[in-house]
């Protein structure tokens, strides 16, 4: 199979790999680069566990070809905490007991981050809308919604 070069910025670091043409970004991240924070829950684009941020937008890495990401800036959940300090969303998920099995958590946090980046003071409806592409089977969603709202409040307090 033809190998193609891909080059992008992942969580602030330059990455360059040769991959099989047709490889999804999810597989490239997990199997080639070793960032396993995006999870493969369905490989069909219906569960959201593989969500990542590409150039500021929420994307399903299982439906994104790696070779289409040349030159892109990609953020995953593993890149959110800086210097061991958790991102406010990560902190809020902890405090709200918003994780159980944890498999959906990285995707949820990605979806929430894009929301807060675009809408710093979201309503509950905004949060619900932002999370509606992410499946969770454990929590019943309410703790996750609360975590995102809490993170938004702490963000706006810090900004004030």
């Amino acid at each position: 199979m033809a190998k193609v070069p891909v080059q992008f910025t992942l969580n602030g670091a330059e990455k360059a790999e040769f991959i099989d043409s047709g490889t999804t970004l999810l597989h490239a991240l997990r199997d080639k680069i070793g960032d396993t924070s995006p999870k493969g829950g369905c490989h069909q684009g219906t569960c959201g566990a593989c969500s990542v941020i590409i150039d500021g937008e929420l994307r399903l890495s299982c439906l994104t070809l790696a070779e289409a990401c040349n030159g892109a800036t990609i953020t995953t959940t593993s890149g959110l905490s800086e210097g061991g300090v958790l991102h406010p969303l990560q902190r809020a998920f902890l405090d709200a007991f918003a994780t159980q099995c944890g498999f959906c958590t990285p995707g949820m946090i990605m979806a929430a981050k894009v929301l807060l980046d675009h809408t710093p003071n979201p309503s509950r409806e905004d949060v619900v809308e932002a999370l509606s592409g992410n499946i969770c089977r454990c929590t019943g969603y309410e703790p996750i919604i609360q975590a995102v709202l809490t993170a938004a409040r702490s963000n706006s307090q810090n900004a004030a």
Binding site: R30, D31, G34, D35, T36, S37, P38, K39, G40, T76, T77, S78, L80, S81, L86, L89, Q90, F93, L94, F97, T99, G102, F103, T105, P106, I109
Partner: peptide, 20 residues
């Protein structure tokens, strides 16, 4: 607090498929 949650929120928890 749950001891496993920090791993979950940072994407560091190792599930079986996170091995290669």
């Amino acid at each position: 607090p749950r001891s496993d949650s920090p791993g979950h929120v940072t994407g560091k928890t190792t599930y079986f498929a996170d091995r290669n």
